[in-house]
């Protein structure tokens, strides 16, 4: 039996999926499948990157509508995987609303990689890609150090301001500034390789891939929105580096 409460839990699943990095098509599909499993006569789901609207008609003629506004994304593919399994389970077994809410809570509170691992990974990724694109060992070390600093900067700025563009401008500004300083003191050798290694951490790879996938599945609006966001993030990274050159004067050789 579809109640307001149950629909709200179903919306939770959809919302969490979208936030963790699912394509729009998957979110719409999951929500409408679950609603159909609970005997809805008709389900209309409309999802774009920033909002989910669900309107459904139950067998006894009641109409229920709920919307969700999505403000923040946090890629978490393990969560997506679990939510996906949960939604399959719900479709097959039609559990009580209480069970669903418990499961969602369980998924929300499960183990994540700790901050230490994250710092390490930031360093490793930055260093790896610096060498990947032709930097030497010095560059790799500098780049890894900047990568770790970048992680702390991201954590810090996100506490102050959640705006994606501001975060990216400031992050790339700090990466650029540190890179220039360390190259000028002679520790790093080539600024460009160091910068590229760190750009790989900021670049909106997931947004780009997902936007294309959305467009193929026919969700043109959602795909274009995501594409615009990806392009704006890329631009704001460039602005950050541009800002560095204003401060230090002609760092790019």
């Amino acid at each position: 039996m579809l109640t307001k409460e149950l629909l709200s839990y179903i919306m939770d699943i959809g919302e969490q999926m979208l936030v963790s990095g699912a394509e729009v098509n998957r979110v719409e599909d999951s929500i409408s499948r679950i609603c159909k499993a609970y005997d809805a006569k008709r389900v209309d789901v409309f999802t774009i990157t920033s909002s989910i609207v669900v309107s459904l008609q139950s067998k006894n003629g009641n109409t229920l509508t709920q919307t969700r506004r999505i403000l923040k994304y946090a890629t978490d593919l393990d969560k997506l995987d679990r939510l996906n399994n949960l939604s399959h389970y719900i479709c097959a077994h039609k559990p009580e609303a209480e069970y669903i809410s418990n499961e969602i809570e369980k998924i929300g509170s499960r183990h994540k990689y700790g901050p230490n691992v994250q710092y390490l990974v930031y360093g490793v990724i930055a260093g790896t890609f610096t060498v990947f694109y032709g930097g030497d060992l010095n560059d790799a070390v500098v780049s890894a150090a900047i990568g770790m600093i970048l992680k702390s900067v991201i954590t810090f700025i996100q506490r102050l301001d959640k705006n994606v563009f501001i975060v990216n401008i400031l992050c790339s500004f700090i990466v650029g500034l540190l890179g220039v300083l360390l190259v000028r003191t002679g520790i790093g050798h080539s600024f460009d390789k160091i910068a590229i290694g760190n750009i790989m951490l900021l670049i909106p790879g997931l947004a780009l891939t997902n936007s294309i996938r959305d467009i193929i599945s026919g969700d043109t609006i959602a795909g274009l929105l995501r594409l615009c966001e990806a392009i704006l993030v890329a631009l704001s990274i460039s602005f950050g580096f541009g800002l560095v050159s204003v401060f230090v004067g002609g760092m790019f050789k």
């Binding site: 394509e23 997506l80 670049i203």
Partner: peptide
């Protein structure tokens, strides 16, 4: 599991970071 899980991380080496820079 959704294909996104693997595709997202696997596509990274192809992402044009150098060209963008």
């Amino acid at each position: 599991t959704p294909a996104t899980t693997f595709l997202t991380a696997a596509i990274i080496p192809l992402v044009p970071g150098r060209a963008l820079y």
